[in-house]
Design a protein around this nucleic acid. Structure first.
Length: 568
RNA sequence: CGGAGCGUAGCGCAGCCUGGUAGCGCGUUUGUUUCGGGUACAAAAGGUCGAGGGUUCGAAUCCCUCCGCUCCGACCA
């Protein structure tokens, strides 16, 4: 490829709407261009990377025995109504009508569609297991698209679905995909770590997310340095910090005017936040619940939801809080609320005594409270978000918190979709059984950006050779000198013959411009064809990631060899 | 959906407070110059100042409405 003919327009300045480094580089290096909020055009350079990632995914899926398909992006509403997700996906799904007023959706995912297709084709246990996949555009009407391709309204996703006869088969499919994902990310030059995660609305409990660790990541992950435990904060567990066995005098009321938050009240009373019990009013499936956690803790709403077995859990609006506690927001407590409602508390508080709680009365708190003696706590459970320094449940080590970008996820779905669609097969005993499903996603476009986020320096992107838009840039410093141009041209075709893709920077630009652009876009290997080098009978070959001192000067005839060596 | 900010040339921005011929840098085109880390000079093209309405002799500028974008929060198979 000749640069002078390529549709590339690098930018000196970052677009003003880009916040994180990978987003800035994506735009500056001319890989994508924003069309509208959350919608991006993939330019030739970006497209080449996207295709290389896709190819790696395809090879690994095929190796794992998955079969490629393409399902329609436009999906009839009936499919979604079958599982009830037409409603529950709600505004996240792009919905439209065709000319006959039939409802259709733009695919946000494809469990329904694939289940319907496989159901129509598989009738016998002999046809199972089967895993199908597709690489296709997905659409989600995100409330807040952000960070470029990280969270966009339209994105490229590989989604795979496994169908098995029993739990054992599903287990096997799940780990087959897990292995394949490990290989995919490694081949993309990414350090992606598998972490345990919450299944959300998708299915049953076992699920792993693959995260690329980065400060710009949207998810928090708890890690145990000793035993290797890694879990999304949505799911992460810890050993409770019980403080039982404290002597507890009789309850006393304290006037705490205008002190509503734990911070305010702890400053007011001169006690540390962990001496307090924070009581929050939640509404779970329409019913109010009091939730107590230690004052220095935050409620994990996902854990709460699972514990209560509720479909929806949200903080109660002020009116409900007042009705339940009999006091304005800020003074809720577990001791004799105005309305007798279910009270649940975090495991930290099991046996807790001599704590301070809201008095269910304006501008007042209670001290010397013994939860067991003074309150009607219905149940104790793990209800809080893990923090750095919390203790690992497995090995007792202190955990750390890092941030990650989720690039892939593997789920066991069980019969959630196959049940709804009555996707059944005949057993050898002629019985009808429901298939067991798993689903497995990789965000291809997000992976593209995650690679940049993980691999860049002050000058630009540092592409791993496996996914670089071109593996080699040939900087032809004097394009108007025929002998130099001939050397570059010959090298380009030799590389092509050797299966290495290269772009020749043949622009009439000063060397500095070419070097800056090469660094910005981040081609793994740079070859400089200049009069200075040619006078000494050589071209210069250098890795993007190395400094100038690691540059090699080789005769043009052996350049291909040297380049291939560097690409390894 | 709540809070904040911003919409002026392909990109980054000034001008707005205090109304009076729409500017700068990058990029683009042409010429000269320079030539191993974003050369320099000159000339040129490119804008219904987000949209609509109002005030005014006159609106990028003041007022109203709407739209879009970004950030924080809530949400997130």
């Amino acid at each position: 490829m000749k640069w002078s003919k390529a549709l590339i327009q690098t930018l000196r300045e970052s677009p003003q709407d880009a916040e994180i480094e990978s987003h800035k580089l994506l735009v500056r290096a001319s890989l994508v261009r924003k069309v509208a909020g959350g919608l991006y055009a993939y330019l030739p350079l970006g497209m080449r990377v996207l295709k290389k990632i896709q190819q790696i995914v395809r090879e690994e899926m095929d190796r794992a025995g998955a079969q490629e398909t393409v399902l329609p992006i436009m999906q009839p509403a009936e499919l979604w109504q079958t599982t009830g997700r037409w409603e529950t996906m709600g505004p996240n799904m792009f919905k439209l009508k065709d000319r006959a007023q039939r409802d259709v959706a733009l695919a946000p995912t494809a469990e329904e569609e694939v289940t319907d297709v496989v159901k129509g084709m598989v009738n016998s246990y002999r046809q199972l297991p089967v895993i199908v996949y597709q690489i296709n555009w997905k659409f989600r009407d995100e409330t807040r698209p952000r960070f470029g391709l990280m969270r966009s309204k339209e994105f490229l996703m590989k989604d795979a679905y496994s169908f098995d006869v029993d739990a054992e088969g599903l287990e096997k499919s799940y780990w087959t995909m897990y292995e394949a994902y490990t290989r995919v990310f490694a081949r993309c030059g990414l350090k992606a770590v598998p972490v345990q995660a919450d299944g959300g609305d998708m299915g049953d409990s076992l699920t792993h997310e693959f995260h690329v660790l980065a400060d710009a990541g949207e998810d928090g992950i708890a890690f145990c340095p000793r035993c290797g435990y890694a879990a999304n904060l949505e799911k992460a567990e810890r050993q409770p910090n019980r403080r039982a066995g404290v002597e507890c005098p009789v309850v006393g009321k304290v006037a705490t005017p205008n002190a509503k938050t734990i911070e305010e009240i702890s400053a007011f009373m001169g006690e540390t936040p962990d001496k307090f019990v924070k009581t929050l009013v939640y509404v779970a499936d329409g019913k109010p619940v009091l939730v107590c956690v230690a004052g220095d803790r935050d409620v994990n709403e996902i854990k709460l939801k699972h514990f209560l077995g509720a479909k929806t859990v949200e903080l109660a609006p002020p009116a409900i809080v007042e009705e339940v506690t009999g006091a304005p927001v800020g003074f809720a407590g577990p001791v004799k609320p105005a309305k007798a409602v279910q009270i649940v508390a975090d495991l930290d508080l099991e046996g807790a005594a001599d704590v301070i709680v809201g008095a269910n009365q304006a501008d007042a708190h209670l001290k010397h409270v013994d939860l067991k003696r003074d309150a009607q706590v219905g149940a104790y459970a793990d209800l809080t978000i893990v923090k750095a320094g919390d203790v690992c449940t497995r090995c007792g080590e202190k955990m750390t918190i890092k941030r990650g970008i989720e690039v892939g996820q593997v789920f066991k779905l069980g019969t959630k979709y196959s049940g709804a669609f009555k996707a059944a097969y005949k057993t050898a005993e002629l019985k009808e059984e429901t298939m067991l499903m798993g689903c497995y996603g990789i965000g291809i476009s997000r992976t593209l950006q995650a690679i940049i986020e993980q691999s860049h320096d002050k000058d630009g992107i540092v592409w791993p050779a496996s996914v670089a838009p071109y593996q080699v840039v040939i900087d032809l410093l004097d394009p108007s000198v025929p002998e130099a141009a001939a050397v570059a041209g010959k090298l380009e075709s030799e590389l092509e013959a050797a299966g290495v893709d290269a772009i020749v920077d043949d622009r009439e630009e000063r060397p500095g411009v070419k070097f800056k652009d090469a660094d910005l876009i981040g081609f793994p290997v740079r070859v400089v064809v200049g009069m200075k080098g040619l006078a000494n009978g050589g071209v210069e070959v250098k890795r993007r990631a190395d400094d100038k001192s690691r540059m090699k000067v080789v005769p043009p005839a052996s350049a291909v060899e040297a380049i291939k060596e560097m690409l390894k």
